[in-house]
Design a binder for these strands. Sequence first.
DNA 1: CATGAATGAGCCTTCATTCAT
DNA 2: CATGAATGAAGGCTCATTCAT
Lengths: 211, 211, 211, 211
Amino acid sequence: MRKALQQGSNARAERARVQRDRILDAAQRCFSERGFHGASMSMIAETAQMSPGLIYRYFAGKSELIHGIVSRQSELLADDFEQLESGAQHPVDGIVEKYRECASYNHDNQISLRHLDATLLLEIVAESRRDPVIAEAMGLLDQRINHGLGQWLAQSSTSDVSPQRLQARALILRALLDGLKMRQARDPDLDLGLLREGLQDVFPCLQGKAA
Amino acid sequence: MRKALQQGSNARAERARVQRDRILDAAQRCFSERGFHGASMSMIAETAQMSPGLIYRYFAGKSELIHGIVSRQSELLADDFEQLESGAQHPVDGIVEKYRECASYNHDNQISLRHLDATLLLEIVAESRRDPVIAEAMGLLDQRINHGLGQWLAQSSTSDVSPQRLQARALILRALLDGLKMRQARDPDLDLGLLREGLQDVFPCLQGKAA
Amino acid sequence: MRKALQQGSNARAERARVQRDRILDAAQRCFSERGFHGASMSMIAETAQMSPGLIYRYFAGKSELIHGIVSRQSELLADDFEQLESGAQHPVDGIVEKYRECASYNHDNQISLRHLDATLLLEIVAESRRDPVIAEAMGLLDQRINHGLGQWLAQSSTSDVSPQRLQARALILRALLDGLKMRQARDPDLDLGLLREGLQDVFPCLQGKAA
Amino acid sequence: MRKALQQGSNARAERARVQRDRILDAAQRCFSERGFHGASMSMIAETAQMSPGLIYRYFAGKSELIHGIVSRQSELLADDFEQLESGAQHPVDGIVEKYRECASYNHDNQISLRHLDATLLLEIVAESRRDPVIAEAMGLLDQRINHGLGQWLAQSSTSDVSPQRLQARALILRALLDGLKMRQARDPDLDLGLLREGLQDVFPCLQGKAA
DNA sequence: CATGAATGAGCCTTCATTCAT
DNA sequence: CATGAATGAAGGCTCATTCAT
């Protein structure tokens, strides 16, 4: 009896997870295409093939959708850092490759749910300044990225670099990456060769191998 | 008679200029506080102490307000590049100083009309993907910044750097600067010392003096 | 199960039909009283006892309301022509009677939804010159009337009348009828006796029995 | 001295007349092109090459413009009836010719100030039901037309036709003419040959020569 | 759990009219 | 007489959210 109940409960929870994901997929797609303010709840509902009302059973409101999207993205991030830290790929190659991935989707007007559309990201950051719900999600994402970046810098730098300097470089690297994302939003067809060349110039510095 | 007419015309033109500026001031303030979609035309009108209808005598619509704001900012940019190119200040100091200026306003919840609020900038970039009017304004701004940055890099690098490498570095520098702006939006109280330290690490590379 | 679903679907469709009709009724009433531009959507919504937003679930915009009104009227037209063609009533009597019906409502400041208020019709025709949605509706109405009139003239004329002459007479008859409607808008209390007398004078010509 | 004053007064009155006419010309043009509600006072002012405010020195409001247009038209009418009554032209030819005149302007998207655009006329009639100012002007126009039509019918009919019958025929003729105008609004490119043929069929009846 | 009809506040924009100059 | 900047009410329409079914 207990088992049956638990099974029922599990099944229910599983179903909820599936529904939430379906909604987030639709939301991310719509937000990417039309922007946070441009995409309506009904449009998202339609994309998710459900009624508008049902969304509110799983999310408290529109902002929560962003929250959900950012949180989900947060988890995907682990993979990227794993690869970076594994050293299997040169960091420059890693960044260029990642950039190419995001941009290609953007360019083909397809949307990859694995990456946050550059424009959407900007909107989210902007919105996070005014919406505490979104701010919370972004805070978490920020923390993870900082942690991951810090970790990698620590391992890839020589051991005589002071922790503060490490932090400083993390800050710069972070800014560089964010700025690249912003550029992606402005002109999606950036010359990848140029990007690689530029990165190769600065990376030694960031790893302290140029001093 | 002619003189009187011309005076009248001048006075009219002057008044128009004043009104336009008053509106743009109000708009920039409102957009910074509530976002492009969050600030309503009547709110802007109220801030500018005029009727909503009057705004439309000077601007064709809401997007044109952004256009106006960006264009105004575009002009202020010249000063920044002048200072950068004059070499009177080390670029790292210039950037840190500029950053401090923007951030301080941001932090005090005041708004400086001399600087584009970081959050607003993100929104503008995001919106520019969908709104041709805003896109045009941003295109112009982009061009100016790229030109300015290119110029400075060319003059501050050794002469044996290939044009393509110069371009690559401009790209990276641009991204770095953009990313810093983005960071400003995320966490306004950044440690300026850390920022300086980080910049000092990478700038030699960007100027080709680290190879 | 299937049956239940179908019932649900039917009920929904039925409700939609009812709502659409309720809106059209309200719109026709408001347009008749205040004109197309004088009647606001909220006024119509209030008359229909619903919120303004709901109207847009059933009609894409204000013009579509006119479209709906005209289409509805279009269907009622069939009855009129049936009676005309049945020959149960002399055409002159039919026209006078129809005129009396419309005018009486008009005169009592009541509005009959079964007849298009003369003033409203004029507005619709005028608006159809500028609004494609309305133009389409009027085009359909025109076609039906022309067809009906043509049919009746063909059957009530002697067989030796050329098709072109038939067309010419249809044109004149149509103009006469339209003009009567226009007169109705100008001075609603027209002497019906006079009208009958006048019609009796010209009808023989239109049927070719006066040559 | 008196003379000078009077001259001044005359000149002033003359100037006023010119200004009024200039405004009415612009208004008629704008109304014809965009409709009563679609043409704004500023648009009319611009067309008349003056400031919006100045219009209000000569006309109390938008409705008065219609009033002025209709009144002016009223005077032009005399010529038409004069020609009709002179008998220099067969009435059928006269009507067809008049129709052609109006339609040709309509069709070429030019606007003749000598004729009321068909669409505008419909709007005016519709508006006259709600606006007393316009109603008054239309009342006058109606009266003149009725008088003119009555006069002509009386002179062109045989003397044994009763006055009531004359009235009845005037009513029908009026409706026919109005309806033709309405048709002009609906489909501007009407076959003139067809029109003439149709008119030739009914005119004998209207003149009582077919009974 | 799911639906989707319904709400109603609020948005951007227009425009007839006024009035200080 | 003339200007045109300024007003402010109103209009059409959208959409996040709720709730009866």
